[in-house]
Amino acid sequence: MSAPPDIIISVHNLTVGYADQVVLQRINFEVRRGEVFAILGTSGSGKSTLLKNLIGLYTPMAGEVLIEGRDIVTAEGDDRLRLLRSFGVLYQSGALFGSMTILENVRLPLDAFTRLPELAKDLVALSKLRLVDLKVSPARLPAELSGGMQKRAALARAIVADPVILFLDEPSAGLDPITSAGLDALFKELSRNSDITLVVVTHELPSIYAIADRVILLDAERKTIVAEGNPYYLRDHATDPLVRHFFRREAI
């Protein structure tokens, strides 16, 4: 089964959870090519669990996730490699390898996926570092960088192999408002300058309003999606008290 061309990720009847605990039950949504799509929810609503199912780290309890029409759970061999190459992930903590320099970290996907000459890999990695505006020497180790700079370096690593989808797991976690606003501007610019699709997991309202085209809101109690649409529209027109509460920070 193949998805319509403008749908890049489609999720059908997906149930996710751990062992005997269901976190989200039979959810359906689609992500369109080129948009900035945000997965929202309070802590414990299953945002990160959903993300890990989307990128194939966890196996869904039921249902399927199709990325460009391919199922990551069943994809094998070259198919799986192509699928993995088609997306980049910015992990919450950056997940830079502490024993490698920034440049080596950023080069890693190119080492894994391509057979470019060494010099070409360095050139591409350096150009991405310039793109994310990392102002420190790429010969440094991650531990020598501030949290914001580590995020930028990790972002460079996530986009170095030119993925079509970029997953961002709580990009502003642990960062001050100014640094995270800077990152948001970077995401916006990235989305505008290329046809990359961004899938952001977050609960930061400023971030959501700044970058997201479309959002879904998850809820822990109902174990499902409680709202879907444009964040400004949901803020102004939602009737569900839970949704109003989230978007306006009102007491229920």
Partner: peptide, 20 residues
Amino acid sequence: QKELQSFSIKDYQDLQSQQP
């Protein structure tokens, strides 16, 4: 063209000179 501008051979040369 726009992305081409983010490349810099100087960055590369700087890096070579920075090897500890």
